[in-house]
């Protein structure tokens, strides 16, 4: 027990026994940042999501000019971009934790993790670029 105490986070990288400890004792002393980001994005998504959904359900069936006019005005453009960033980050963390629970081989877990990261990056880039294009008026 007292041995455990000497293994502080600052010395963890140099301690040769860390990996063995992790394998046998469970905690990787990592993951709090992701946990926090999941909660922080969840909080941000309460107002952003309500605002976005209320607007989207009306605009999704409207003509292009109405939707484009909404997305190109400053406040909706800003809030939609924030919604996309928070939502897709939240999505990535959530999907990765689903994989972690249900994908039972290391290789598949790695592949699924890379795939979902790539997909998130593409969605983030494409959706934010689309809003920016409308906002900058081209």
């Amino acid at each position: 027990m007292s041995d455990n105490r000497s293994l502080s986070n600052s010395t963890a990288l140099r301690d040769g026994s860390v990996l063995r400890r992790v394998r046998h004792l469970g905690s990787a002393r990592d993951g709090l940042r992701e946990w926090r980001l999941q909660r922080l994005t969840a909080l941000a998504l309460i107002p952003l999501g309500l605002y976005f959904t209320a607007s989207l359900l009306r605009l999704a069936t409207s003509d292009r000019l109405t939707a484009a006019a909404w997305l190109s005005s400053p406040v909706p453009a800003l809030l939609v971009i924030l919604f996309l960033l928070a939502g897709l980050a939240h999505m990535l963390i959530g999907l990765r934790s689903v994989f972690l629970d249900y994908v039972h081989s290391r290789a598949r877990l790695l592949a699924a993790g890379l795939l979902v990261r790539a997909a998130t990056a593409v969605l983030m880039g494409a959706s934010v670029l689309a809003v920016l294009k409308l906002f900058l008026g081209r």
């Binding site: 999704a60 897709l88 999505m91 959530g94 969605l123």
Partner: peptide, 19 residues
């Protein structure tokens, strides 16, 4: 959550289509 992740593909598609 998974359904909303799938929905985010359609959402991005719609935004790109509007643009």
């Amino acid at each position: 959550g998974i359904a909303l992740a799938v929905g985010s593909i359609l959402l991005t598609w719609w935004l790109v289509a509007v643009a």
